[in-house]
Design a protein around this nucleic acid. Structure first.
Length: 612
RNA sequence: GCCUCUGUAGCUUAGCCUGGUAGAGCGUCAGUUUCAUGAGCUGAAAGUCGGGUGUUCAAAUCACCUCAGAGGCACCA
């Protein structure tokens, strides 16, 4: 049996996961599941990097014991896997004994070989950061974060002779399909060829967290040197059954930021330790949220676990896989999610299943025996093409190919009008349609596992593999329609309140009653029942509730002009209902005839700041 | 600073390597259907292919310049 070993990067546990973590796991999961339905023996690994110094720092900040902090956070990452139906076969943590043992083993192996030697690390050391800075980090010779001049420090360190393996690495990276996509390969190759490979510092002195080097108790192994090894230690190198069966890895799925580590440093470590090289490094891009980078300071990082309480996991999986082309950066927005969920999942797929099941139930309540197969319909399904797209990691295109067939099915029903048919013709058409839904459930199972199961249950069929994705296999269908696959996501409609109009002249006391705040426009949506109105969701800063405001800006501002704009809002305005939608505040704007111009703070200032 | 990538209809994007009338999805508009989830189907409008110069009989596609955005530059998983 063909084996398939796939991994994700292991995550730092210095905080909660963001949507990017979910994205990487979903990609790997789809590939793993695809290879499973192809009948391969799959091992899918993900996990956490517990030993990173960053974790220790974050624990300090949270004032928790490091070990507890790391354990708690690792649990959240495991929960993330559960929530998104990630089918990993194992979840490794680098604090596991066998991993620690492995890290130390390859460290001493390389040391004995002479690939690791003791040396001195010199550089600018910032006391505030407790870290070495490169000259590029410095602004006016100062650490930009602490505004202090760093001191020149020398520290004992162990170094790894990366340069020794330069030629081998170049030839590995040059080999076809080692790094996918191509441009990421070229990037690495260009750097390898143009730059000198410096030896790498692979240890840190006197740290309280991390794996102690086997040759010097004062030093601990630097994070990535230990972390990369998880791909091997999880298989019980060197004698474990799993290692013998699954190594080398077929695919390491990673984000573009850590390509150098996986394409250059990891191979060097393996060369030094005499371990076979992995077959492929699959580099994915980064996700942005509503068009901007994920960052804590922007406050736009989405908690995927929370997100999954709001939307079905399958819908989130779908939009990430369908929207983003692997290797490129992609954008995630709830707007895109809603649109894809409603159009493609609910309308195209959900409705197809629903209409076919109704036809089958109405006409064949006692069951439908195997009948002729409609060749014309199945000529529109190209499974080979879908498979080859998956093999090329073009997940979005594979999904689009599946959807082509879904659309063909809908078209087919409209053209053939089975509800007007009788007898054998009717049997043939309904049987063929049920078969196409069954085949779809197989093809979709890697992408939408929950949905796939729901379809199968209604068809009264068991999960199948790719070989079974051909028509004419089921001898009798006894279907049972059970509710809807995807409920539409509707815009929030809130309950009415009283509208109030006020005032003439006011004094300062009255004015000071106004609670004016700087807010950030977080989301912009169309009012379902008004041409000139937007529904805005305003972010009022940390710890504050968001406000929904209906505002007549449509003729003056495009959505993208508004998103992320800082505006001034009256926060304590009585809530009003504007054409059926509650408005919980009001934006300040200058108005002249048709012209509208939003009032804004003139300089950069915190969201939530009071305006007076 | 050096390097890489991206810029195509209102939005998301295919095509660029291997030059030859710009394809698609969403949205919009119109028509049509009732088996089905305010679903389906058919069709239409909509693009100076960031800007400029050049190569060529011919450029979204090749070269050079320029503008805008994103990313990498080694201890950042």
């Amino acid at each position: 049996m063909k084996k398939f070993y796939i991994t994700t990067a292991i995550d730092y546990v210095n905080g909660r996961p963001h949507i990017g973590h979910a994205y990487e796991k979903i990609i790997a999961d789809v590939l793993a599941r695809w290879h499973r339905i192809k009948g391969e023996d799959v091992f899918f690994l993900t996990g956490t990097d517990d030993n990173a110094q960053k974790n220790a720092e974050a624990a300090k900040e949270a004032r928790k014991p490091i070990k507890q902090f790391v354990n708690d956070n690792a649990k959240i990452f495991q929960e993330l896997c559960k929530v998104f139906n990630i089918s990993n076969d194992y979840f490794i943590r680098t604090t596991e004994k066998r991993h620690i043992k492995f890290s130390q083993e390859i460290f001493s192996k390389s040391f004995k070989k002479g690939d690791i030697y003791k040396g001195k690390y010199e550089g600018y050391y910032c006391l505030g950061c407790e870290a070495f800075l490169t000259e590029k980090d410095l602004v006016d010779e100062k650490c930009p974060e602490h505004n202090k001049k760093p001191e020149w420090r020398e520290e004992e360190s162990y170094f790894f002779k990366l340069s020794k393996y330069k030629d081998k690495i170049i030839s590995l990276v040059s080999s076809k399909d080692f790094i996918i996509p191509k441009d990421k390969k070229n990037e690495i190759l260009a750097r390898l060829k143009s730059e000198e490979l410096k030896d790498l510092s692979v240890s840190r002195k006197n740290t309280e967290w991390g794996i102690i080097t086997p040759i010097d108790k004062e030093h601990s192994i630097y994070v990535w040197y230990d972390a990369l090894g998880n791909y091997v230690s999880a298989l019980d190198y060197p004698k474990g059954k799993k290692f013998k069966k699954y190594w080398p890895a077929d695919v390491h799925v990673i984000g573009k930021g850590i390509n150098w580590f996986h394409s250059v440093i990891w191979p060097a470590i393996l060369f030094s330790a005499n371990i076979t090289q992995p077959k492929r490094i699959l580099v994915h891009g980064y996700l942005t949220v509503n068009g901007s980078k994920i960052s804590k300071s922007l406050g736009n990082s989405i908690d995927p676990i929370e997100l999954a309480t709001k939307y079905p996991a399958d819908s989130i999986r779908y939009v990430l896989l369908r929207e983003v082309s692997l290797g490129d950066d992609g954008d995630f927005s709830e707007e895109a999610l809603t649109s894809r969920h409603n159009n493609e999942l609910a309308n195209d797929l959900g409705n197809l299943v629903s209409r076919v099941l109704t036809l089958a139930e109405k006409n064949f309540s006692k069951g439908l025996k195997k009948s002729q197969v409609d060749k014309k319909l199945f000529s529109k399904l190209n499974i080979k093409k879908i498979d080859s797209l998956m093999e090329n990691f073009e997940i979005n295109n594979a999904l689009s190919e599946v959807w082509k067939f879904i659309n063909e099915c809908n078209k087919h029903i409209n053209q053939e009008k089975p509800w007007e048919m009788k007898g054998k013709e009717l049997e043939k058409h309904i049987y063929s349609l049920l078969e196409s839904i069954r085949i779809l459930s197989i093809l979709l199972s890697p992408f939408l596992p929950e949905t796939s199961n729901k379809i199968l249950k209604q068809l009264n069929q068991k999960p199948g593999n790719l070989k079974e994705a051909k028509p004419g296999l089921v001898k009798i269908y006894k279907v049972k329609k059970e509710g809807i696959l995807f409920n539409k996501i509707e815009e929030k409609m809130l309950k009415p309140d009283k509208i109030e109009n006020n005032l003439d002249k006011i004094d300062i006391k009255e004015f000071s009653k106004l609670d004016l705040r700087v807010a950030r426009i977080k989301e912009v949506g169309d009012h379902p029942d008004a041409k000139k109105l937007y529904i805005l969701i305003l972010d009022l800063g940390k710890g504050e509730h968001e406000l929904q405001v209906v505002s007549g800006l449509k003729e003056n501002y495009k959505k993208e002009e508004l998103i992320n704009k800082r505006v001034i809002v009256i926060r304590n305005l009585k809530h009003a209902v504007i054409r059926g939608i509650e408005s919980q505040g009001m934006l300040l704007a200058a108005v002249f005839k048709d012209k509208v111009s939003l009032a804004q703070p003139d300089k950069d200032i915190e969201i939530g700041a009071k305006v007076m």
